[in-house]
Design a protein around this nucleic acid. Sequence first.
DNA 1: TTTTATTTGCCTGCAGCAACCAATGGCTTC
DNA 2: GAAGCCATTGGTTGCTGCAGGCAAATAAAA
Lengths: 162, 162
Amino acid sequence: MAEKAQYEELVRQFSAFGAVKRELGRIMPAECPGGSAAVLTLLGRHGDMRMSKLAELLAVDMSVTSRHVAHVVDRGWIERSPDPADKRSRILRLTPAGHTQLDELSRRTTEVLAERLSDWTDGEVGQLTSLMARLRESFDCRPGTRAAPAAFDQTTRTPAST
Amino acid sequence: MAEKAQYEELVRQFSAFGAVKRELGRIMPAECPGGSAAVLTLLGRHGDMRMSKLAELLAVDMSVTSRHVAHVVDRGWIERSPDPADKRSRILRLTPAGHTQLDELSRRTTEVLAERLSDWTDGEVGQLTSLMARLRESFDCRPGTRAAPAAFDQTTRTPAST
DNA sequence: TTTTATTTGCCTGCAGCAACCAATGGCTTC
DNA sequence: GAAGCCATTGGTTGCTGCAGGCAAATAAAA
């Protein structure tokens, strides 16, 4: 169990971390504002998927995901085709232009990080990455996990059959 | 020098990190929205200071700092007294109520982190903290260091051409 | 007059919630 | 078995709030 001062310092780093993200975004000339970049990256990494899946990976609300996706679709980087198996769903897929954009994004990212983190060892980068991943796990960041948003009012007569 | 994939994974963690901060903010019942908390914390840690100093510590624009401070002043947690030595400046000081709020904030923070990071060792917490601090250094996140804010408004990017 | 410290106005991006639409699935009813 | 209802699910849109930046304005040095 860490001490109080240590936790406070950690929180301090949390709040100051925004500056890093902003700086990173500032450098990247790609005309996609962060959220869009995340969509492209995840789509590139995990392949075609539904909105809901993407929202889960992004760890944000569906509505936010929907808007990000709309933005990216507007730019022609992904296409939203209806799922033949369930016409409510939309399958997201990178277009060729999307692949191009993603490549460019990835190139710039690597370039910038290689410059900024030039004095970091491979191990340090990996350490930070895995600690941050673990942090996310520890916080179990799912938007609606503990919020219980109006899904059950009182009319929840709990059919309980299933 | 780390590989491309490693950098991309790091960036992925960056973008997903927002969820951690949000979750943390969600849990904290303190009625101060993040920015205010940072103001209180820094003021508590570094003592009375001017706006400009605070802005530097926060690593955000002065305008943002100004608004955060205004918000906190409204709540009576800090007071802004004119600097007798330079009436342009304002000295920020925690009020008794501010100290109370800060204590409460700190208490909650510790409590929440102790719960969420219960399976983290002291060393791991420290490691993450120092890696994040170092990351900030590596990016040299000062809001005007390299962005040339209105000083030169042209394409004076000039990346030093290594 | 020119700088410097701070404030204010305006705009962007990100996020959540609630309301809404459309497609489904499960059931009952004809 | 087909048709009709109803709760659920996937997604979108409107509204709100927070955070941040830039630019113009103000005020007090220098």
